[in-house]
């Protein structure tokens, strides 16, 4: 299982008051939801992990390898990321070529590239759209396409920034399924999300950030049991908990299924 270790990590944006300061943090679960308010430092962590930002001091180790020692190509094979807005990256004439472009950064065999791209498109349900202009696809489809560009490269660690934002229900289901498959095949997935229902129901572990620090790391159950912490970091509990609370039951529930299990005992 991949493991990310952050030690004495510091980063300050030029001309801004925000400061990221992490004493020591190990991310070793396979499905991690990274949550927190806007400006808590979630995206900064992602940018540091992908080398878009360089830390002022401290170390980032992925599987005991120092991140800064990796070549760009090694890094691509180790860590892949998709951003919130698919329109920040699509530029090829067809969906197929878009995925092939990403692959061509890490491998040379044309035949293999074509095959791998096709397989990745099929995984996100876009095999029918392979020949279409990415910008003729719907937003949900475009977002799935960006996921395919990373799936094709098949890195060890996946970072997703708000993968569910503005997705339709069908795409959300598909994304969840893909996440579980990846986790089952030995990958690590770290996802920034505002969707607490999803984070609570589908994730093994929650990492909560506020003001540039990690405030919590552990199971969703442990986090949502701590109401004062939820409030302190400015988050909301999942809907099922709000409903239960209004019904006079303040225990933590992660999903409808969870509620049912606890009540049918």
């Amino acid at each position: 299982m991949p493991q990310i270790e952050l030690t004495q990590l510091q980063y300050t944006y030029p001309q801004q008051s925000f400061r990221l300061a992490i004493h020591h943090q190990v991310l070793s679960d396979s499905l991690i939801a990274l949550v927190g308010q806007n400006g808590a430092g979630k995206s900064t962590i992602f940018k540091l992990l992908t080398g878009l930002l360089t830390a002022d001091s401290g170390s980032i180790k992925i599987n005991h390898q120092e991140l800064s020692d990796l070549t760009p190509k090694q890094r691509l094979k180790l860590i892949g990321i998709t951003f919130q807005n698919p329109d920040d990256q699509l530029f090829n004439a067809t969906a197929q070529k878009e995925v092939e472009w990403s692959l061509s950064q890490v491998m040379a065999n044309k035949q293999q590239i074509t095959l791998k791209a096709k397989a990745a498109l099929a995984k996100v349900g876009l095999e029918q759209q392979a020949g279409e202009n990415p910008y003729d696809l719907s937003l949900s489809e475009r977002k799935r396409l960006t996921v395919a560009t990373v799936l094709a490269v098949d890195p060890l660690v996946y970072l997703f920034d708000e993968p569910l934002m503005s997705l339709d229900w069908y795409s959300k289901q598909m994304m969840t399924k893909i996440f579980h498959q990846l986790a089952a095949s030995g990958h690590q997935i770290i996802t920034i999300t505002h969707d607490m229902d999803w984070a609570a129901a589908e994730f093994e572990s929650l990492s909560v950030m506020a003001n540039g620090h990690f405030k919590f790391s552990g199971t969703p159950k442990a986090f949502f049991s701590n109401r004062s912490l939820i409030q302190e970091v400015g988050l909301l509990p999942p809907k099922i908990m709000t409903i239960a609370e209004k019904l006079g039951d303040s225990r933590p529930y992660l999903s409808v299924e969870d509620y049912y299990r606890q009540h049918s005992k």
Binding site: D168, W169, Y170, I240, I243, V256, E257, Y259, H263
Partner: peptide, 27 residues
């Protein structure tokens, strides 16, 4: 391809029915 509201899902699981034997859709 739409999800049901959480109240509906919960009521369905718990078999909480309205007098009309329908399921609730809001709190």
């Amino acid at each position: 391809q739409l999800p049901a509201p959480t109240s509906f899902q919960l009521a369905q699981k718990m078999n909480w029915r309205l007098p009309t034997s329908d399921f609730p859709v809001n709190f």
